[in-house]
Nucleic acid binder design. Structure first.
Lengths: 344, 344
DNA sequence: CCGGGAAATGTTACCGGTAACATTTCGAAG
DNA sequence: CTTCGAAATGTTACCGGTAACATTTCCCGG
């Protein structure tokens, strides 16, 4: 079984000039690879003279460490992936911002993946994400299939679910109760004298949880709350048309619980266009407390979620895990605040 | 020089049960690693019987391929990274959406990194991104340092810059001319009879390009356009306060060129609150043509950018590159549209 | 001048895949 | 029953780093 000797490495792969590697730097300086590796990851272990020489060589060559190789070897990728249903969702941006900041301080990098609303795609994305072996995954309000949950568990990657309080978290969780919000909004409107409220809601699962809890409160008072749904993400226009639709079938409504500030703002505009006095004749309450709500006329009452806090806590949890320290709490409820303004 | 024999592999690394690898699957089925690899990447090369057995074993074990290892070996990561200045920027979401769709169809994955407004951070992020050896990078309106540009070139990773027409692109480019927009807006307002316009603008570089070109047109007509700047990203409130500030010093203005629809909407609200008739006394024009603009009262004239087209073209360029085919054009100008509505 | 421990650097063997080439198997033609 | 090329599978050597342990260097007190 005679075998031809294989070609020399240099000829093996593509012929174009490669980017420099650790070995190149090491050869240039006259040390071994591990010394260069230490210059990057544990500089305090090297003598000042060696460190200086290595750094100079790195700068000269424009060397950029291949993190794929490093991660593969060390089994730590210093990468956290956050999956959001849609990049467009204004709600999550504050959270992501905070997560990115926090992680950066600890030498981790955040990459954001868009899961979309398609279930098959979600599975494929998750597979790809797990394949890259991140040190942690942040899930934002994603409906994951049983199979996906199974894969996540099997991968042994720390997971934080956010923006919701699911009954059986995969691992860790930072969120709040959507039904509690619906209930609070209903009770608040009732207290303000509202007796015939309606709902305009996005058609996503969590918005429905809020809407249902809202309806339940009034159902207990023998009133069936009319509901109009609009496909997420909801533009302002859907708030206008939503109110129009509601008024056609229920001209006597005296309040609207909107599933997003966008919808609420649209309803507000439509009400004004029709000469309906807000809040005198119609009380409007939104959700999300977007920055533009307080600039509306009248300023918009809304439910405020501390997205930044969610981000901070989620990041802390993952960092704690990555450093071998278990987080104090695996489940955190950040609650919500009803911000009262002139629209109610 | 006697050396102790090293410990067996199983004892070398962490003792916890590992996730399965290609080798595990191969052993279970009774083939070699490469056969399992082919089952995943080139199933047509295997006999139906073998393929079936391998697939069954994969499913049974819950195996997820380690893409770090695969990418390292094959030198293709099937990963495209997009860097945006801020996740919150509503403008880029349409682009990212389209990019994600397009890439997914071709088996690539999109990950989004937030560069932030900090320059030092931008360099660090870029280093980390290059380190992960993506097959392509999409830059959205980022001011990159000379050093960063150098690194990008050295990394030989295909790069598409977007949302701008820079004079010396790093590699490929899909954008439009910001000065052309400023000029067009100015000429349009002039034609509508506007003689004393003002500007409310975010303080980012590209918004300034538009503002300066706008001012230049009126400077040629011997009128110095007053400017108010607000820190990006601009909330509606800054539009309100911006108009207030302008009216204090220039009570005779008859038009406002706003650097974002948010600012324009804020100005609109403030004008209404002051009883200023729009467009009769004050013409307002925005930028971005966000969905809520047409629901404003009056509907907002704005400059529309086809963000989806930018995304599609950028993705096409990168895919073309990745498949060895050079793209038809390295620089594409997608232009813009002035959408005329009742606010002017 | 020597011993010994800390500091600095080196050696070896992987991490988990894929490229490139080699070999074996198999069906159909001669 | 060969022969032969295509199809199926295997072998070997990496990709570019890091872990774990080994060795060498250096400095200091005795």
């Amino acid at each position: 079984m005679v075998k031809k000797p294989s070609k020399k490495p240099a000829e093996r792969r593509s012929a174009v000039a490669k980017t420099p590697t650790l070995a190149d730097i090491a050869a240039e300086v006259g040390v071994t690879k591990i010394t260069v590796s230490r210059a990057l990851n544990a500089p305090e272990q090297l003598s000042p003279a060696t460190l200086e020489k290595v750094r100079a060589a790195i700068k000269r060559s424009g060397y950029t460490p291949n993190l794929l190789a490093g991660s593969l070897s060390s089994n730590r990728s210093r990468l956290i992936v956050a999956l959001v249903p849609s990049i467009a969702g204004a709600m999550f941006t504050a959270t992501m911002q905070k997560v990115a900041e926090h992680l950066q301080e600890h030498g981790y990098q955040l990459l954001i993946g868009q899961a979309g609303y398609d279930d098959a795609r979600e599975d494929a994305l998750l597979e790809a994400v797990i394949g890259r072996r991140p040190d942690g995954i942040i899930l934002t309000g994603i409906v994951h299939s049983a199979q996906a949950r199974q894969k996540l568990r099997a991968a042994r990657i720390p997971v934080v679910e956010t923006w919701d309080l699911t009954p059986k978290p995969i691992d860790m969780l930072v969120g709040f109760s959507h039904p509690a919000i619906g209930k609070a909004a209903a009770e608040y409107l009732w207290k303000r004298g509202c007796r015939r409220p309606a709902i305009i809601s996005p058609d996503d699962r969590r918005a429905r949880l809020r809407a249902e809890a809202f309806s339940a409160v009034f159902a207990a008072k023998k009133y069936a709350v009319p509901v109009v749904e609009a496909p997420a993400p909801t533009p302002m226009g859907d708030g206008r048309s939503g109110l129009t639709a509601l008024l056609k079938t229920h001209p006597d409504i005296d309040g609207v619980f909107c599933g997003s500030d966008n919808l609420a703002l649209g309803a507000l505009i439509e009400a004004k266009a029709r000469g309906i006095m807000v809040p005198r004749q119609l009380r409007i309450i939104g959700y999300g407390d977007q920055s533009y709500g307080k600039d509306a006329d009248p300023p918009l009452t809304s439910v405020r979620i501390d997205g930044a806090a969610i981000g901070r806590i989620a990041a802390e949890m993952l960092i704690a895990r990555a450093t071998g320290r278990p987080p104090k709490h695996k489940v955190v409820d950040v609650g919500f605040t009803l911000v009262e303004r002139a629209s109610t």
